[in-house]
Design a protein around this nucleic acid. Structure first.
Ligand SMILES: [Mn+2]
Ligand SMILES: [Mn+2]
Ligand SMILES: [Zn+2]
Ligand SMILES: [Zn+2]
Lengths: 139, 139
DNA sequence: TTTCTAGTTTAGAATTATTATAAACTATAA
DNA sequence: TTATAGTTTATAATAATTCTAAACTAGAAA
């Protein structure tokens, strides 16, 4: 197996978070992070894509474990949008989304594209943890 | 059984939506709508409250059916906030929420308390269905 | 008032997404 | 090379919700 440059990069990235660079994790890194644009996905989608072309299979449990590990490490962000499925995002910067109720797909909205000119003060003792907007759209 | 005035009102309300005024639905109406302030709940919470004091029990299936029927009829609104549990709201007007990640409770924010001075145009062919903000708070 | 029937309730089974378990495997430090 | 903690995996368990089908009932019609 030829170790490409970006593979070496992912090995470092994983090591820096105390995650061993296993072949499963590296395969998932390549798939998720070796791309230009933001990728939004559910575990179901990721599992299908990773295991599409036959070859060494990555188990569903490992897909779940890895998504959880990458989220904890800050490589992925969870987007709360749907009531019965978790969505994840390779764009970990603070930003907003369109959520298409028909196709069930998320699209990025750059943080500066929404301006909140009035925001209420949270109840005392509480602070705002997250203020990212999900705009629900449909045909 | 004495039929109180508000019970008669709920009978009409249900009939107007082609829902038969069964004793289960009326009990749930009394509990949900005979109050001053907004009530936010999950099916689990509603089930506990309705079946707290022993007496005639309403089955969990009926709680689910009724919440679904009331939501379709426009008497309840579903709030998408948590990844694995549905939240409902007796306040069906357009408004925003604080969601406390600790207590997992929703609090109303009046529609006028948040001002969005810049909102992106949705992709062509799509229109905005809902623009209600959930502000996640914690200690 | 009685009868009829579509609508409703219910217990329990099924489904879906996710998490837990525990045995087999493996990266890597010693 | 060996030891071992971390990882993967199949499978079981769990939690929320939906489905199923039999029993029940509201209310229209006879
Ligand atoms: Mn669910
Ligand atoms: Mn779940
Ligand atoms: Zn995004
Ligand atoms: Zn509310």
């Amino acid at each position: 197996m030829i170790i490409s440059d970006n593979l070496k990069m992912y090995v470092q990235k994983l090591r820096s978070s105390n995650l061993r660079p296993t072949k499963q994790r590296l395969k998932i890194c390549q798939f998720l992070f070796n791309r230009e644009k933001t990728f939004h996905f559910t575990v179901e989608i990721l599992n299908k894509k990773i295991n599409k072309n036959r070859g060494t299979k990555v188990s569903l449990a490992t897909i779940y474990n890895t998504v959880e590990a990458f989220t904890s490490a800050g490589y992925l962000k969870e987007i709360l949008t749907s009531k019965n499925k978790s969505y994840y995002d390779t764009n970990t910067k603070s930003h907003h989304h369109f959520y298409d109720e028909g196709s069930k797909e998320l699209t990025d909205i750059h943080y500066s594209q929404i301006k909140l000119s009035k925001v209420p003060i949270p109840p005392k003792g509480k602070k705002i943890k997250n203020l990212e907007v999900v705009i629900r759209i449909q045909k």
